[in-house]
Design a protein around this nucleic acid. Structure first.
Lengths: 247, 247
DNA sequence: CGAGGTCTTGACCTCCCTCAAGCCTTGTGG
DNA sequence: CCACAAGGCTTGAGGGAGGTCAAGACCTCG
């Protein structure tokens, strides 16, 4: 948890992409030091969001994008009759809010699942800056495009796969993202409830629970509440031959 | 079918956004005449794609975006074990290929469901042009963002709704898009098979067929093969209280 | 320490899938 | 223009994966 426990003098708490440990994952990917410095000027200080608090709600006017600096978010959409669908889970280095550019309102709600810190990227200024730095524009395109591809992966998952496969795909994806952030790929804590997992994967919380239990009985994983250990990665991977790129 | 049957001298077949009947739906939205003229220079001639032919395949290197000028496409992704998932249906005015910007390869396959014509937008040139025309950049952001929002709608559909609701949402969406293009909102021809509808909606073709039959028995729609008439719009709308924005 | 949220597990049920058969539509070649 | 094949559609019967309802155990946090 190096991010959380960095020891930094209080005065320098101003976010700075150029010395952020996430700069290889986050918005600055592909920028040189000079360009990164320009980004630093625009980005608002680290902002703390308490667990259970929204970063923004569906319908809110769009002002900024947010980069997750620390913690864990879920994004959800609500149907008119009140059904909630989790559309994604977002961790350090992820950019949230790209769905708001379409009509200048947030289309989903982003909720902190634990105490979080985000960097705020005021859109006006980012847009201006992107006009000066072509690499930044191109990176934005890439980020949005990848979000679309990710969503296609989720469609494949929801449309074609059985409960077991969905849950495996989910675990493998989490595992891979933990690895990319320097954490253990086989041992991690689920930040979300069974119900949230179920909503994301299109199944009921009971089915999530039962399926976890079955995986444990098979000796593939060890579950203890929210603590997950992947014991037999090969066996698990075998179970899901298809489906890529969800988040 | 004014688009298909326009009478134009052969020499002027060069696509021209400025006199295209789709300019209020397609890429040029929000551009002035001068900007549109610049766009005209870059866009490649109308290209015919025969029914059953691919516009591009998943994995193909990314060279161009495509605007559907006429006809009907489906986009699909394939899982490693060969299961196909339809990720969208695309008609005149829609832009296809935005999912390829992420890593310069097409992530999905686009297949013509009837004889089609597309305008090719070579990405290099479009990108250059967008740098000169801020409105175009902004419009691109909007298009991609809307694609993300649309995908969230599909997730809601696949994750939360029952077969009946899915099919209604599908019909209403088609109806709405037909209206936007000046066709009847209650009377149209399905360009895709039951199996393709089913793949898109996460259900089997038999279920699609049965559900259509049930709707017909209720007096809500009239089905005759691919010809659909929506007879009782209010009743249908009542059935789907949630879910917005799929395509 | 108690209350409320979260998780597990069991029993039952339902919606949709699977398999199958037959009909209809469309396209192709004689 | 007809005949036939092949793909597409409809409908039925039966089964199974996952949903629903319920009860109790287990956290966790004020």
């Amino acid at each position: 948890m190096s991010i959380a426990h960095e020891i930094i003098p209080v005065q320098s708490l101003k976010a700075a992409c150029s010395n952020c440990s996430l700069r290889e994952l986050c918005l600055p990917v592909g920028l040189d030091m000079g360009e990164m410095a320009q980004l630093d000027v625009v980005i608002d200080q680290r902002q703390p969001i308490k667990r259970g608090e929204p970063l923004f709600r569906a319908g809110d006017p769009f002002k900024s994008l947010y980069a997750v600096r620390m913690g864990f978010f879920k994004t959800t959409v609500l149907s008119e009759d009140g059904r909630e669908q989790v559309t994604g889970f977002h961790m350090a280095g992820d950019l949230i809010g790209l769905d708001a550019l379409g009509d200048n309102r947030h289309a989903c709600t982003a909720l902190a699942l634990e105490d979080c810190e985000v960097c705020e990227l005021p859109y006006h200024q980012i847009e201006e800056l992107a006009h000066k730095i072509p690499a930044l524009t191109r990176h934005f395109y890439k980020l949005m495009s990848r979000e679309i591809v990710r969503d296609q992966g989720v469609m494949m998952l929801l449309g074609n796969m059985r409960a077991e496969e969905r849950l495996v795909a989910f675990l493998l994806n989490l595992s891979q993202r933990m690895t990319a952030r320097g954490f253990s790929s086989t041992n991690f804590v689920l930040r979300m409830t069974r119900e949230e997992i179920g909503s994301y994967l299109g199944m009921k919380l009971e089915t999530v629970s039962r399926t976890f239990s079955r995986f444990q009985a098979e000796g593939w994983i060890a579950v203890q509440g929210k603590q997950i250990e992947i014991v037999d990665l090969p066996s698990i991977k075998q179970l899901v031959s298809g489906c890529t790129g969800l988040k």
